[in-house]
Design a protein around this nucleic acid. Sequence first.
DNA 1: ACTGAAAACGACCAGCGTTCGCTTTTATTG
DNA 2: CAATAAAAGCGAACGCTGGTCGTTTTCAGT
Lengths: 197, 197
Amino acid sequence: MPKGTPLTEEEQEKRRHEIFHKVVNVFLKKGFQETSMREIAEAAGLGKSTLYDYFKTKDEILIYFFEDQLNDLTAEAQRIALQNMDADQRLRQIMEMHLEFLVENKNLFLKLSIEAQRLKLESQKRIQNGRYAYQDLLRGLIEEGIREGAFRKVDPLLAARLLVHIMAPVVFASRPTGTPQEMLKETLDIFLKGLQV
Amino acid sequence: MPKGTPLTEEEQEKRRHEIFHKVVNVFLKKGFQETSMREIAEAAGLGKSTLYDYFKTKDEILIYFFEDQLNDLTAEAQRIALQNMDADQRLRQIMEMHLEFLVENKNLFLKLSIEAQRLKLESQKRIQNGRYAYQDLLRGLIEEGIREGAFRKVDPLLAARLLVHIMAPVVFASRPTGTPQEMLKETLDIFLKGLQV
DNA sequence: ACTGAAAACGACCAGCGTTCGCTTTTATTG
DNA sequence: CAATAAAAGCGAACGCTGGTCGTTTTCAGT
């Protein structure tokens, strides 16, 4: 990495990605909050203040993670939403994908999404914009289902939000009553039955 | 408050309650995380280290709040659960009470429950025990409903957990689509319909 | 080879939660 | 009523934190 040359925004982004990847294991072991900027810098093989050239604050590191992940999640959901199936089937498929997504990096997402709730309101809003994109996609599907007559005339945004929120007890249950997949199925059975006409 | 006399555990508890009450407004204005122990001590009219005689750590102050509130909530729910009504009616009534409870001190509960998620895992577990008592009470009602044939044979613990979790989007929605009461009604309509045979 | 500018850095800062050793207060005792 | 023991109360001090600043290192373009 040459020094005297300015990095393009793209290169900086790539660098952020690299840095985050080098540090992920520390977050997994110690948690984000409990990891100091000194430790993060060391794990990334950087001087402490160099870290600040890539992330303006410590919180920015967490925000970076979520913006990155939510982009991926929404893109994948969009792909499913465009398929040629009943709305409720697509909803199911999206939530299964969502679950897979969460389970894959379960510890990471569990740890970091808990810690994300402690960010300053302004930081939360940035993450929230990403969430909204996802929520609105689900809402679109629910509206479609209502239009098609498959669902009752429920408040589509509220229903979309419920859908997102019921993922938590499925993935993060501290007293699980089955595999996440089983719990998701049961949950969707309840939820989608509740939506039906 | 005499000095040379040891306080009984009961007196200490009362003192903790007093202290918390004196400080509540600071938490409401600044948030818990952003309020330093120095400020807390000042608001309580105590020396900084005297505070530590009543709360072993800063987090303990937050834990105290939740244990206190969850006790009240569960006691109230228990009262409703014992009434002579259909299980789903009692569930509805409990959730309405729960909502009222949250709305009443909305700002406090909103602020503090967000900040509570940042506590150390061990501290969270103590709060969780309180949550379990409440969850199990709801589970009991759902089991009753199943036995009576009003509900399908769903996983009662999972359903109870869902019920608790759907409160969040109702009370804490950043894009609300109605009054909390309206949103709760719609939410319960979906949820309870999903439970029906 | 020189130079300007960006990258990298470690010493430093204010403020944090928490601890410690000391002072103040008072119910009990002789 | 004086002496005492023990708890309540306290502020200074500690080790740490996230974040800043002035300097040094590095290199592309001349």
